[in-house]
């Protein structure tokens, strides 16, 4: 139901004389753009990030990139194969095969833990669902592959990502407002994903 009070009538503002004649306003606009052109050419300060060589500083408090599979204090995989993450996943990209745990303190552990990074929508639901904080989304974004199979990350690869990024606790930083925030930036350095690491 639309009430009269909901309706906001907007009058078109009257055009000024210069606007009616187009030319002065066009000249005005062209002045603006030529200033930008001159600034870019003379001061050499384009805003573009030359990506593969330069990398942007990432915000760690809210960026959701590649997954990692954490290790616990003893260096074992933290996952207990409870299937919470794969149940929560809206894209159905997590495939877990559970097996009897070789360790006494838990019943199960994941024999296989595959994430299809092509299907994943990086929503972070798996991370929220995980009861033991075993799966987390890192700040990595530069995943490439030549085939679809390469983009399905196995348990070993996910653990390798943890080994690489273990020093950072993603999104557990204090909440910041505004952008760019102070102090919460991490300079992106080369973080090659080592595929054959276990």
């Amino acid at each position: 139901m639309i009430r009269d009070s909901d309706i906001l009538n907007v009058d078109q503002p009257e055009l000024t004389a210069a606007e009616r004649f187009y030319l002065p306003q066009i000249v005005e606009g062209m002045k603006t753009t030529i200033q930008h052109l001159g600034k870019t050419l003379l001061l050499k300060k384009p805003v573009t990030v030359q990506y593969p060589e330069q990398k942007r500083e990432m915000r760690l408090d809210n960026y959701r990139g590649l997954h990692r599979l954490n290790r616990d204090e003893d260096g074992r995989v933290a996952c207990v194969a409870c299937f919470m993450c794969s149940t929560a996943c809206p894209a159905h990209c997590i495939h877990i095969e559970a097996a009897e745990s070789p360790w006494p303190d838990r019943e199960k552990y994941p024999a296989k833990f595959d994430i299809d990074e092509l299907r994943c929508i990086y929503c972070g639901m798996c991370e929220e669902a995980c009861p033991v904080d075993a799966i987390e989304l890192t700040y990595l974004y530069d995943l490439v592959g030549r085939t679809r199979e390469e983009m399905i990350l196995s348990k070993e690869e996910l653990i390798a990502i943890y080994d690489e990024t273990a020093s950072v606790k993603p999104r557990k930083n204090p909440h910041v407002t505004g952008y760019p925030s102070t102090g919460q930036h991490r300079k992106m350095t080369d973080n090659p994903i080592v595929e054959d690491a276990t």
């Binding site: 753009t33 930008h36 052109l37 870019t40 384009p46 805003v47």
Partner: peptide, 8 residues
């Protein structure tokens, strides 16, 4: 176009 839009 790039220069006008502060790009390379």
């Amino acid at each position: 176009a790039a220069w006008i839009q502060d790009r390379y």
